[in-house]
Structures are given as structure tokens and as C-alpha cells.
Design a protein around this nucleic acid. Structure first.
Lengths: 196, 196, 196, 196
DNA sequence: TATGAATGAGAATTCATTCAT
DNA sequence: TATGAATGAATTCTCATTCAT
């Protein structure tokens, strides 16, 4: 019994992994279902036993990856950390994830134009949640006089920007720096500015 | 003779403008050459008199737009400005450009998957130039003791990040703020940090 | 042992019933084996234990239905009836069958394009039998001076025509008339003509 | 100028002719667009320059053929003819058309299940027109006391039936009789009945 | 030079059939 | 014997590109 379920789950899993590989390398439109099937080591038709269409497969892959990403970035003990520590955690977590799965990050954050409407909504909801979380963190830090009374959107922009730029422009490939050190420096820059 | 050339140049221009319109609205893969021809007001076959292929047209469009972008972001009197002023100029220039040409910005900065190898190289060269420019600016500012002695890559990341996040996440649509004010705030945050 | 056979026979039967349902609703090409299996309440693979292929299943279904039709149209005591009564019986029997199983009739009489060669032959044999029967009936009626000495093919055409038109053109849906009355009128028209 | 139009029209025409050939031989579902293209002597893609889809092509073919059929069956001087003559004309016209284009007739009258809704409506309208025409003819004949006061639907069924049976059951292939003689006999049977 | 009709490679998807269990 | 997961041939349709005019 367990074997059958395992096998089935396994195949679905293998398809999703193959999908990550192909979608991230080629982008949605250039990805061919046949290649995904080949990489998953199954027949073309089998894909459609597990996913209704190319778009459905893509959407499921995105959701799966987003969840994986969330786990890797969000700390469980976020309530206990200071603002400075939170920034450090976010930057470092994101950097680690991006370094490992650079292409995935690209698809995940930017390749949104072909997403189905419901996936867009789903991602929007996730984004709003995140925005709200940052608002709470900023408000708390302002209240506790850890930071200046800034618009939380400003912090959001800065953070999102740092996060974005970390994997963009192929910086990661060329700049040898470890996540912790990068997190140190960026956190310092954000907290204290770069003015002498 | 000159008239023909003039006419020709004109047509090439019209094609490029139409290409911007179509590629930015539909994305590379969904863009159809026929639509580009229609918008340019010419025959489908004529496209191929001016551009070898869809990819070539896309590449030329990217180059064209990048140059336009560079003009709008880079000030001529960059040598005369202080570091703080330069950051302000960059942020504000980018914000303005992005707000006006949101979709173009997206394609320009992130839709890299379909770029031909030579375009990738071209963009890499541009990026290196820009990196070098920032290095000079940072070095000068450090030397003149305007800012702390930071790794110029750090500044590059922060700047690139801010630039990226400005148009990402649909922030632009939802956040009503004018370019100057945003530039003020971000410049202040970068220079002085957000710590109280 | 007998139970297994019984079970088996039962299953074959259920498949044929399901086939009637699906083939008549969807037509041959749009019918899916999976749906037939579902309706029969068996697994997809099991179909192929009982029928070699979709086409074989279709053919067997046709044969089954044709026999059912023959029973409903042909009277046992055909020898005892007058020509007029026979026509009445045929028209009324066909009308009844068609009204109940309109879609089946359509498949049975007209959807011949996908029939396998051997089924075509089978149906041809059936048709010849029927033609022969009508020839006998006509000859007898002519001999007994019940009708004029007409070519039996003429009668065959008229009968086949009436039979065909009864269910065609959606007449059945729109024209509220009971089988007996229709049979009365048509028999009268055939026997006596419509001239005043 | 005329040449270009001629050429284009010619190609559309050739596609329609090829479509008749393939659809009538294979039926809608088994017909392959590629075969139609081959027979028309053009490329696969060219079909789609002239017809949006397989269904559109089928529909246009049906309409075309129906019009052709109508011309061949309907006499211009129908008002001047007696009821008997009209029946004679209809039977003989239909017989001629069917003999020449047996398979087309089959598709035209019976292969209705895959027709698009609007084509079904179109054919229904045609059918209603025809029904109305027959009603007028019957009413006139009844009024002028040429025939008994019968329900016009009865005549419609008989006519439609004769028409149907003429091409059905492969009768045409096996029965050597010329159109005029058949029309004579059937008209006589309808008018006077077959009772001695 | 300009055109757009013609093309056909290529992609997504379906479904009858197979076969390991 | 019964099953249904797996398969891949087959099919429709798209669209970048060509080429005769």
C-alpha cells in the first residue's frame, strides 16, 4: 500500500522537480512539456495524469517553491528578535536561498506575466501578508525607539530591493562573499547608513 | 537618394517603436511579428528587410531602450555632484523612468531568458561600465571622507536593489508618492541609516 | 465455476449496455473507452478482456441492437397478415422503436462510416435478407391481386424511406402524433395514394 | 488584378472541394486537416489562412453544398406546376444529385451531430423554409382538389422519406434505373397508391 | 524595395491500448 | 481475471520566416 502511494507521490514529485529545472532554464513559454517528461523519466502523456495542463503544472510548481522559500527565509522566533536581527535574518536567509536556486528565484519573483489569475491572487495574498508582517516589525521597532519613525513602505522597499538585487545582475556568480558577512554589512548599512 | 535613406531610417524607427509596444505588452514569446508590422504600418515581410529575425529585433530594441534609460538616469554633471546628490539623482531618475515605462523596465531588467548570447554580452559590458562608474564614485566619496570606507559592491547592491524594488511588487501602482520625495527619503536612509 | 462464467457474462452485458449509452450520446469518435468502463462499473483494462478494441465493441453493439430492433419491428405472424397490415406493422413498429431510441436508430442506420469491413458485410447480409423478405411479401400481394404489379424495389424504397424519414429531420420531436395514427395514415397513403 | 483574386478564390475553392472529398469519405472526426491540405495541393498552414478551424471549414462546406443541392432540386417554375409534376421534379432532382454525390448527401442530411450551433440553426431555418414550401404546395393542391385533404406533414414525411431512401442502403449502387423512370414510378405510387 | 500569401516545423493535448501487479 | 498507471502516436493549430511578384 505504502509503496503504491510512495511511487505515485514520487512521480508527481519527480515531475515537479523536472518542471523546476526546465521552467527555470527556459522560462514558461520556451519550456516544452516533452522535455519535462524526459527529465522526469516518464512518458509525455503521463504528465497529464498528474497535471491538467502546462499552466497548471507551472502554477503548482510556483506554489511549491514559494512555500519552500518561505520556510528558508522566515525565522520561527521572529517575535523575539530585535529589528536589526530580523533584517540580518531576512537578508541572510534570502541570500542563501538565492545562491542555491538562483534561477528559481528569478521565476518566482519576476516571471509573473504568464501566471493564471488565481495564482496571481495567491501570490498577491502572500505578498500582502509579508507586507503586513514588515509593517508590524517596523511599527514595533519605531515604538520601541529602535529606529526612526519611518514609513514602513520605505523599509519594505529597501528590504525588497536588497533581496532583489542580491540575485539580480549575476552578482552572485562574480562576488565571492559568504551570506553571514553580506548580512552583517547590509544590516549595518541599513541601520547606520553609509555616511561617515 | 537621401529621401530613400530618410524613408528607410524612418521605417526602421517605426518598427522599433512598434516592437517596444508589442514586446512590453505581450512579452517576447507571445509577441507576434505580424502585430508589430501592423502597428508599424508596414507589411509583414518588410520587417525582415530591416531585422534578420524576431530575436534580432528584440535585441536591437533592448539596446535602444537601455540607451534611452541611461540618458534618463545619468546626469551629465555627475562629476560635480556630491555622493549624496548622485544617489538622489539615480533613485529619482530611475523612479521616473520606471513609473513612465513600467513594462519596458521589466523587460529591460529582468526578461533576460530569451536574450541571445551577444546581447547578454552587450548587457554585461554595460553592467561592468556601470559597476566601474559606481566604484569610481564610491572611491571618490570615501577618499573625500563623505562616506565610510565601504566595499563599493555593497553600495552597488544597495543601489541596484533600490532600483529594482522600486518598480517591483507592483509597489508603484499602489503607493502614491512623487519621485522627489521618494528620492529624499531613500537617500536619507542610505546615507544616515534608519536607526534612531 | 458457473458463478464465474455467470459473472463474466454479466460483465460483458454491462459493457454492451454502457457502450450503447456512450456511443449513442457521443457518436463513435467522441466516445471514450474510459467512460464506457466507468458506466459499466469496471476498470478500463477490463474492457479489453471482453472486446479486442473499440471498433470490435462498437460492432458487437451494433449487432446486438440490430437484433433487438428486428424483434421489435418484425411480427411473428407475418405470414398470416395482409399486405396492408404488414405495412402498418412495419411503420408502427419502427416508429415506436425510433421514438424510444432515437439516437440508437441514428447510429444503427446511418453511422456507417466507421464500421469495420466485416460489420459492413454483416449489415449487408441483413439488408439482403430484409430485401428478400419484402420481395416475398410484395410478390405474394401481387399474386393475390392485393396490389398492382409493382417492382418490389419500389416498395422497398418507399418503406425504407418512410422508415428513414420518421426519425429524421427531428420530426419526432416536433410532431405530436401517436404510432398507431401515423401508421394508419401512412398505410392509407401508400395503399391508396393521396390523389383525391 | 483579376488574376490575384482569381487565384485566391481558386484556392479557397480548391480547399472546399478537397474538404468535400475528405469529409465525405472519412466523416468529420476521422478527417485530417493535413489530408485536406494535401488534396488541395497546399500547405497545412494555408488552410488556416482561409478557414479559422476544422469546424469552420466543415460548416462552410455544408452551406456550400446545401446551396448547390437546393439549386439542383428546386425548379424555378414551381408555381406553374401541378402537384404531381412537383413531386416528380423533386424526386428526380434529388435522385440525380444523390447519384452523383452520394457521400455528400449522406453528410449533408445525416452527419449533423458535430455541427456547430449556428450551423444547426442555419440548417434548421433551411428545413423550416422547405417545410413551409411543402405546406403551401400541399394546401394549394388540396384546395384545388388535386389531392385528398391530408396533413401536409404526412406528405412531408413521405417525400423526405423517399428522398432519404433513394441514396440510403446503397440502393443506388445496385439498382440500375434512370432518374426519370424512378420519378415516374414513385410519383405514381404516391399519387395513386399501390393497391390494385 | 515592399508585400502578404504560403509554408511547415513545432507545441500542447488526447485517448486507445498495453502490461506489470 | 481485473486493474489503472503509463504510454506515445496522432491531431489541431500557431506563427516565424520565405519568396514570388
Amino acid at each position: 500500500m505504502r509503496e503504491v502511494i510512495g511511487k505515485t507521490e514520487n512521480k508527481r514529485e519527480r515531475i515537479l522537480l523536472a518542471a523546476v529545472e526546465v521552467f527555470t532554464c527556459r522560462g514558461y513559454n520556451s519550456a516544452r512539456m516533452e522535455e519535462i517528461a524526459e527529465i522526469a523519466g516518464i512518458g509525455k502523456g503521463t504528465l497529464y495524469e498528474y497535471f491538467d495542463s502546462k499552466l497548471h503544472l507551472f502554477n503548482e510548481m510556483i506554489i511549491r517553491c514559494w512555500e519552500e522559500y518561505s520556510h528558508s527565509v522566515t525565522s520561527d522566533r521572529i517575535q523575539e528578535l530585535s529589528f536589526e536581527e530580523i533584517i540580518w535574518e531576512i537578508v541572510q536567509g534570502h541570500f542563501k536561498f538565492s545562491k542555491e536556486k538562483k534561477k528559481l528565484a528569478r521565476i518566482l519573483f519576476w516571471d509573473t506575466e504568464i501566471m493564471a489569475e488565481d495564482l496571481k491572487e495567491w501570490m498577491d495574498t502572500r505578498r500582502k501578508e509579508r507586507e503586513k508582517l514588515i509593517k508590524q516589525i517596523v511599527d514595533k521597532a519605531v515604538q520601541e525607539e529602535e529606529i526612526k519613525p519611518v514609513d514602513y513602505m520605505l523599509v519594505y522597499i529597501i528590504l525588497a530591493g536588497l533581496i532583489g538585487s542580491i540575485w539580480a545582475f549575476n552578482i552572485l556568480d562574480e562576488w565571492e562573499i559568504n551570506p553571514e558577512k553580506l548580512a552583517d554589512q547590509l544590516t549595518d548599512a541599513v541601520m547606520n547608513g553609509i555616511r561617515r
